[in-house]
């Protein structure tokens, strides 16, 4: 009797759950899935602008073949987009973890400092960035990003590393490399806002008792960081890696912006769709592989 009743509630709950989710599923189908299929169709056809909007003419995998084998630019851009992430990602993760640990400590003015700290969440938008880098006229963000890594970014150059480095009298090659890396690190501070926030949230969930136990057992600060903080943060770290990759690949990806400009300015829809589909597939595979590696290598080892 009792089990039957609870089973009834379960069924009702199931229905309610579906009712809660149903509008979203509808939205996903109408505003995501259908456009996605349309975009796939575009990428497989020749799109012309006719009197009745866009007209498609099936062309097979022509665009994909062109992109991969005839277009030298595309493959370069694709490879660059993928490899760039391996320099930015570790820097962002390390910096935001350091910031989070410092901001998570008890000190006077902590609230104020955190308020200041999250300003990059506001500033680090393309629009503000493009003005700050003195590049207001450019239609593309990619130009801005190029400026950022160069030295003509007047607004962001709070510290001029080149001068300091020159005084060190290092060999020119090493000097350039160091300057580039330092400047890069410096600029990446602006993309650490959300990540720091996620890390702080993660740090808050670690119970203080763990640290106390560690202290009793005679662990040094370094050991407790390495054996308590890092393993307990493994879930958040994965979330941060995921978020950062999306941010770097999708929101700020050079290829996405190129495609956007081609669409907007030149009204090319077929090739750009193919570009984006290939990019999405490659990025999806990269993210998937990093996820799996993380799970297999790091999380298992920690546990």
């Amino acid at each position: 009797m009792k089990t039957k009743k609870s089973h009834g509630i379960e069924t009702i709950k199931k229905r309610y759950g579906m009712a809660f989710v149903a509008p979203w599923v509808f939205g996903v189908i109408v505003f995501v899935l259908v456009p996605l299929i349309t975009s796939l169709v575009y990428s497989l056809s020749t799109v012309t602008i006719g009197s009745n909007g866009l007209e498609t003419d099936f062309a097979g995998i022509k665009h994909y073949r062109n992109l991969l084998f005839s277009d030298a630019n595309y493959t370069d851009l694709l490879v660059k987009s993928i490899t760039d992430i391996f320099t930015s990602l570790p820097i962002i993760i390390a910096l935001s973890l350091i910031f989070a640990i410092i901001l998570n400590q008890q000190f006077r003015g902590r609230m104020l400092m955190r308020a200041v700290f999250f300003l990059p969440v506001i500033f680090a938008s393309d629009v503000v960035m493009s003005v700050m880098s003195g590049d207001t006229s450019s239609a593309s963000l990619s130009a801005t990003l190029n400026d950022m890594s160069g030295s003509n970014m007047a607004y962001m150059n709070a510290v001029d590393f080149s001068e300091i480095l020159q005084r060190l009298n290092l060999p020119a090659e090493l000097n350039n490399l160091m300057e580039e890396y330092l400047q890069e690190t410096f600029n990446l501070i602006w993309s650490c806002g959300v990540q720091t926030l996620l890390f702080i949230a993660g740090l808050q969930t670690i119970s203080k008792q763990l640290y106390e136990v560690g202290k009793v057992e005679g662990a040094t600060a370094w050991e407790s960081f390495w054996y308590i903080t890092i393993p307990m943060l493994s879930n958040v770290t994965m979330l941060v890696i995921f978020y950062t990759m999306i941010e770097l690949f999708i929101t700020k990806g050079e290829l996405v912006i190129t495609a956007l400009n081609d669409m907007r300015i030149y009204a090319i829809y077929d090739t750009t769709s193919a570009m984006l589909w290939l990019y999405f597939l490659v990025v999806g595979i990269v993210i998937g592989v990093i996820f799996l590696l993380y799970k297999q290598l790091i999380q298992k080892r920690i546990n």
Binding site: V34, T251, V256, L260, S273
Partner: peptide, 17 residues
Amino acid sequence: LIIMLPDVMLVIPRVEN
């Protein structure tokens, strides 16, 4: 998957719709 999807991919078909 939706989180990973760039908006650029969807926007032209959406405008059409």
